[in-house]
Simulated scan of single mutants.
Amino acid sequence: MGEVAGTASVRRRGGEIVSSVLVALGCVLFLGGSAWGALQYRPYTVPTDSMAPTVAAGERVLAQRIDGDRVRRGDVVVFTDPQWGDLPMVKRVVAVGGDEVDCCDARGRLTVNGQAVEEPYLSGGGPASTGGFRAQVPDGRLFLLGDSREVSLDSRVHLADGTDGAVPRSGVRARVDATAWPPAGLRTVPRPEGFAQLPGGVSRPGPLVPLLWAVGTGALLILGGAAYGPIARRVGRGPAS
């Protein structure tokens, strides 16, 4: 009987150790991932349909905090600019400093430095603009358009004001990586391939997906570890004599 009791005691202690390790590892992943995510990302609510269908009015997005000098063509960014009302706005970068942006070619496409850009994300499938325009983007500035070109008030409107229509890179606050609310609309915002062949290519995805995996895995380990301890103790006691 003493040997059986000793074996059961070892099993209980082993189960408690495994449980503690799982919970501790889960806490590291969950809390570390949550803290890092809070430093990297900020939520924004999009008030209009100017970026539909990529982001609809009322949806909440997760945007990675970045400097404007990291922005590339195709990025969906959150920015502020006094000439645009000095409130956070969400638009897509279609041209950067030094680019000549023109619209539209014979197929209704935007061209950047003479190269046509396919934009499958456009509301209704296009065209790239409801009216023609051409602009030379000054160095250090970004030309921004909404994905719903028929309703978006963007760089085209400011061209009509007699300015270059662009905003300074310093006005960028973040780059949108995903929509987070409502839950049914949870999805990442991909980098468009249409800009990939232009100099500089497109930006790389942010760390959102690995962070979500870390947080989710951590939560599962915490729950699993917490459940494993009582189960191991029960099994270790064995059948009542």
Rank of each mutant, 00 (worst) to 15 (best):
Ser170Trp: 03
Gly165Leu: 04
Arg156Ile: 13
Arg156Trp: 03
Val172Asp: 04
Arg169Asp: 13
Arg169Glu: 15
Asp147Ala: 07
Ala166Ile: 12
Leu159His: 04
Val157His: 12
Ser155Gln: 09
Val167Pro: 04
Thr163Met: 08
Ala166Cys: 15
Gly171Cys: 03
Arg175Ile: 09
Asp177Gln: 11
Asp164Asn: 11
Gly171Thr: 01
Gly165Gln: 03
Gly165Cys: 09
Ser148Leu: 13
Asp147His: 03
Asp147Pro: 05
Asp147Asn: 08
Asp154Gly: 13
Ala166Ser: 15
Gly162Cys: 07
Leu159Asn: 04
Val151Gly: 08
Pro168Asp: 11
Leu159Pro: 01
Glu150Ile: 08
His158Gln: 14
Asp154Gln: 13
Leu145Val: 15
Asp177Ile: 04
Ser170Asn: 03
Val167Cys: 10
Arg169Gln: 15
Asp164His: 05
Leu145Phe: 11
Gly146Met: 04
Leu159Ile: 07
Ala174Ile: 05
Arg156Ala: 09
Thr163Tyr: 03
Ala160Ile: 12
Ser148Ala: 15
Val157Tyr: 12
Asp164Leu: 05
Val172Ala: 03
Arg169Met: 14
Arg173Ala: 08
Asp161Arg: 14
Leu145Asn: 07
Asp161Glu: 15
Arg156Gly: 10
Leu159Thr: 05
Asp161Met: 13
Leu145Pro: 10
Leu153Val: 13
Gly146Trp: 03
Thr163Glu: 10
Val157Ser: 13
Val172Arg: 00
Ser170Gly: 12
Arg156Val: 14
Glu150Leu: 06
Ala174His: 00
Asp161Thr: 14
Asp177Asn: 06
Val167Ser: 07
His158Met: 13
Arg156Gln: 10
Glu150Trp: 00
Val151Tyr: 02
Val172Gln: 03
Gly165His: 00
Asp161Ser: 15
Gly165Val: 09
Ala166Asp: 11
Gly146Leu: 06
Val167Lys: 06
Gly146Gln: 05
Ala166Gln: 12
Glu150Tyr: 03
Ser152Arg: 04
Ser148Cys: 13
Ser155Ile: 02
Ser155Ala: 14
Asp164Lys: 04
Ala160Gln: 15
Asp164Ile: 02
Asp147Gly: 07
Gly165Tyr: 02
Gly162Trp: 10
Val172Ser: 07
Asp164Thr: 07
Arg173Lys: 08
Glu150Gln: 11
Ala174Pro: 00
Asp164Met: 06
Asp147Phe: 05
Asp154Tyr: 08
Ser155His: 01
Gly171Arg: 01
Ser148Gln: 14
Pro168Lys: 08
Gly165Met: 07
Leu159Ala: 06
Gly171Lys: 01
Arg156Glu: 06
Ser170Tyr: 04
Gly165Glu: 05
Arg175Glu: 11
Gly162Thr: 10
Ala160Cys: 07
Asp161Asn: 13
Asp161Tyr: 13
Val167Asn: 04
Val176Arg: 01
Arg169Ile: 07
Ser152Gln: 00
Asp161His: 14
Asp147Gln: 03
Asp164Pro: 04
Ser155Pro: 05
Asp177Cys: 01
His158Pro: 08
His158Thr: 11
Glu150Asp: 12
Arg173Tyr: 00
Asp147Met: 06
Gly171Val: 00
Val157Met: 10
Ala166Arg: 10
Asp154Met: 12
Ser152Gly: 01
Thr163Ala: 11
Arg156Asp: 05
Asp147Lys: 02
Gly171Met: 02
His158Val: 08
Ser148Lys: 15
Arg169Lys: 14
Ala174Asp: 09
Thr163Arg: 12
Ser152Ile: 00
Arg149Leu: 09
